[in-house]
Design a protein around this nucleic acid. Structure first.
Lengths: 339, 339
DNA sequence: ACCATAGGCGTTACCGGTCACACGGTCGGG
DNA sequence: CCCGACCGTGTGACCGGTAACGCCTATGGT
């Protein structure tokens, strides 16, 4: 099994294959790219040479020559959370199917890990397009100022005239949750929101307020957490929710903490107060009580996002924004209010 | 603000910069790479030209020329889980600090998403090194057969003569949990394990068995879940844990489900039975009851892994394997057994 | 005064692909 | 019978960088 040693020992190049097959490098390239007009016999010789040498094409050289990296950059804020992480994975999977690789950049509050730093880094890496996940209000501004030269898609449920967007419809999700509570008979519903500099938090809060008003429920102020179960716990333990008989919580983790806090001071869910979350974590069905929540279809979102990205890359006209419908999952953390 | 238009409109190259600065492209390259022996005045001219043209170097061309992609491929099984995801993020962050980018491949049971497919794809993308996270027994075999040509590091707590490894010490973690239960006075401790074709599950199970035996506790069979809270729930609801007064669970999610299941049939935690988990999810402190568990320091693991990867890339001699010590977090799901 | 040395920079050849074009041969049509 | 079109393939430039080497000038030692 003699190895075809060439130049010290690198990966074989198309020239090595060409020499072995007795053709020019160009013919090898044509075979690799399925060009027509190659005689079947030479095609076979080349194919044989390819697997004798164990050749694989260098996507780096290819990227340089074609000016297409076949790579999509993804900037994601808070990638440890279920939603953003799921979105990345879905995107990765959809991208792979289309022949694209993805490069992720995890943004955070840290000065040099901000969204725009991520954009810069990914562009420097040479991606064909950018996708920004779960942005805050400020991040879109940063994005707007940045003329990157590559097409970008933002995962945000608020259509924006300046950029392409795709998302799960956050307001619709919040309405689903609210209507469920209202149908159960609740007449005063509090809201534990996420940080309002996040688009998703804001959309959920706005929809909560609108739905409340539309149903003639009393207007109250939302309380604001930071997405973490810790913050939910604090409110559950100490906050006075007034005469509210139900709480719409902006994500499942805060709902978990909230229930923990409420329970610790003897308030029972759902007997004393109903709680509905948002996200449907894989674990939410095992919370005590199992959590009623809103499910987002991240896989569908990933596929959609990739479609939009690809058509943006190829310059085909694309709808500026698209939405995925969420779904309500009713479990045991909600019940009619006590009479 | 006249743009320096060159060739249609691409990103500027070093030649554009060179022309503007009135030097050769090589001088630009030298400035970019901080070579000595450049006159300060020309260096300034070049620097000026660089930011007038808005030049950024193409890491693709650079990768081709230097034969270093400055990119590390990461294959990860089950990236939606907290542990693997945390490890990736930690690695990403450490890598960025060292000037490396990472490419992730999510493996799964799916035929063409197996570990070896990931290895192939990442190698084809042209990474300088590979890191495999959270592997199953089978995946290491796949890995062993694959002569990839790039250095590889496996995140597994069982040192392997054939490959470089790094991990949080799983056995030590399990011992921490067990000793805690034993010190509380438990004399019969059950184990809800993860799938035993996972290295980590196996290590925890083995350590459970050994610790039990060493303390003279009765030997029992572990029950085996699939990491999900669903599977924990099933066991909690239906399994007969015999005279066990405590259960060591192989991860927090299964512990959550288990507690849900136990509660649903009137068994209280920790009054009737103690439960200790493994991982310390951010939410585990808000489970009901807050979960006693074993914390793994993923950030430290990421840093360590990157160090090993880099020295493997650079060919400097490296310890074949390294371990990070885990830590016990005592909360309220454990208590002395009832008298 | 002379030569060795080092500093400062340019020339040219790669890296591993693709693309545009050229070229000889075969075949069909006028 | 000649010309043009198409098939199959090779040649050379180019993508945007880096590496190796060479050349000219100033400097310093002898």
């Amino acid at each position: 099994m003699a190895e075809h040693v060439t130049r010290g020992w690198q990966r074989p190049s198309i020239y090595d294959v060409a020499k072995l097959a007795g053709v020019s490098h160009m013919t090898v390239s044509r075979v690799l790219n399925d060009h027509p007009n190659i005689r079947e016999s030479t095609r076979q010789r080349v194919l044989d040479a390819i697997d004798q040498t164990n050749y694989t094409r260098s996507s780096i050289a290819r990227a340089l020559a074609t000016r297409r990296a076949m790579r999509i950059g993804v900037v994601v804020d808070n990638p440890l959370q279920y939603g953003p992480n799921s979105t990345i994975r879905a995107l990765e999977s959809a991208a792979r199917d289309a022949g694209y690789a993805i490069s992720a950049f995890s943004a955070s509050d840290d000065e040099d890990l901000r969204i725009d730093a991520g954009v810069d880094e990914l562009v420097a890496q040479g991606v064909d397009a950018l996708c920004v996940i779960a942005p805050r209000l400020s991040s879109l501004d940063l994005l707007r100022q940045r003329e990157t030269g590559v097409p970008a898609l933002v995962i945000v449920s608020e259509p924006d005239p300046d950029m392409h967007t795709a998302a799960v419809d956050q307001k619709a999700g919040a309405r689903l949750a609210m209507n469920h509570l209202i149908e159960l008979g609740h007449r005063s519903i509090a809201h534990l929101a996420g940080p309002l500099d996040w688009y998703d938090a804001r959309a959920r809060e706005v929809a909560w307020r609108e739905t409340s008003a539309a149903a003639g429920l009393p207007a109250t102020e939302a309380v604001i957490g930071d997405w973490s179960s810790d913050s939910g716990y604090e409110f559950g333990k100490t906050h006075d929710f007034g005469d509210a008989t139900a709480i719409f919580v902006a994500n499942d983790q805060m709902a978990l903490g909230l229930i923990h806090g409420l329970t610790s001071r003897g308030i029972r869910v759902p007997q004393d107060i109903s709680v509905v979350g948002f996200d449907d974590l894989p674990d939410s069905r095992h919370f005590l009580p199992p959590l009623t929540t809103v499910r987002q279809d991240f896989a569908a979102l990933g596929v959609l996002a990739l479609q939009l990205l690809i058509s943006a890359i190829e310059g085909t006209p694309t709808p500026a924004s698209q939405m995925i419908e969420p779904r309500l999952i009713v479990r045991e953390s909600t019940a009619p209010p006590r009479a």
